[in-house]
């Protein structure tokens, strides 16, 4: 992966001048490259990585396994696109293995998600079955171990 993308993957808010020094590249060139990535859709956006357990907000997340019947000429594309249209759905993946589509769905309450599955998802043409798994706790997300911030245990001993 390009170094610029690597640095941004670690910290998308990295200051442009700092990045220029760290990568030994002119800031203008980095900016231009980033714009190109944005225009080409390589970079699709920037979001904070939130630890929802620390935010005082009601939020429930579920992983839903969906089995579907692929359609002639369209395969899984059509049904995946339809499901992707729902705002409640934050990601949709086509899977190998025992089921077809893997969804992440976010709602305010368990009931929200139950209703979404019953009223919007299960009823779609082509959906054969669903299995809903609620997220109970998050230990690691986006490569970051959640919970308490680590402290630096190193002492000024070694020289």
């Amino acid at each position: 992966m390009d170094q610029i993308l690597q640095v941004l993957s670690g910290n998308a808010r990295m200051d442009l001048d700092k990045m220029a020094v760290m990568l030994d590249m002119p800031a203008e060139e980095i900016q231009k490259k980033i714009q190109e990535y944005e225009q080409a859709g390589v970079i699709r956006g920037y979001k904070p990585l939130l630890d929802y357990d620390k935010i005082d907000t009601e939020l429930v997340e579920a992983i839903i396994e969906v089995r579907v019947s692929p359609q002639r000429d369209f395969g899984f594309e059509e049904i995946a696109r339809i499901i992707s249209e729902y705002n409640e759905v934050s990601s949709v993946y086509l899977m190998s293995g025992g089921y077809d589509l893997h969804l992440r769905v976010v709602g305010k309450t368990f009931k929200d998600i139950a209703l979404f599955v019953a009223q919007r998802l299960a009823v779609l043409d082509g959906v054969l079955s669903t299995a809903t798994h609620f997220v109970l706790s998050r230990y690691k997300d986006w490569g970051i171990i959640l919970g308490e911030n680590g402290i630096d245990e190193r002492r000024n001993i070694s020289i």
Binding site: D152, R154, R155, N156, I157, S158, I159
Partner: peptide, 26 residues
């Protein structure tokens, strides 16, 4: 004795010190 000791004994006692002193990976 290593010249650094006396100095870091002070540093280790102080609050809110930012160290750039260690010789080991983070």
């Amino acid at each position: 004795p290593s010249g650094i000791r006396r100095f870091f004994d002070i540093a280790n006692e102080m609050e809110n010190v930012i160290s750039l002193g260690v010789g080991e990976p983070d």
